[in-house]
């Protein structure tokens, strides 16, 4: 998989990314993505885990949002259901194909 940090790709990535955000496509896809993640229970699961991480750390001094995010990030990224991931990839590919001729 080509990395976006690779200088050869990063310029293209930046440009495509801007196009997606400015056309509203980015927002449309994030809405679909977050609806699918809510329905499959991913959002509630990550919410539950983050909350229990915060609870087990106690209140003094407690955990900051940044620490909780570090703790939960790997699990959260790994537990996105395959069907949701593939569905979103297909939508992004579809968008990119539609942009190539223009």
């Amino acid at each position: 998989m080509p990395s976006r940090n690779d200088p050869a790709n990063s310029a293209l990535y930046t440009q495509l990314h801007r196009r997606m955000v400015e056309s509203g496509e980015w927002d449309r896809l994030s809405t679909i993505f977050s609806q699918r993640l809510t329905e499959t229970g991913w959002v509630d699961d990550v919410h539950h885990r983050s909350k229990e991480i915060a609870r087990s750390a106690g209140s003094e001094p407690g955990k900051t949002v940044r620490q909780i995010m570090t703790d939960v990030q790997e699990y959260a990224e790994g537990s996105v259901p395959a069907s949701v991931r593939q569905g979103l990839m297909a939508l992004i590919r579809q968008y990119l194909d539609s942009q190539i001729d223009k």
């Binding site: 930046t14 990314h17 801007r18 955000v21 400015e22 980015w26 994030s30």
Partner: peptide
């Protein structure tokens, strides 16, 4: 855009 990396911000 991001003042540091220049990426368009959603």
């Amino acid at each position: 855009t991001c003042g540091t990396c220049g990426v368009t911000l959603s």
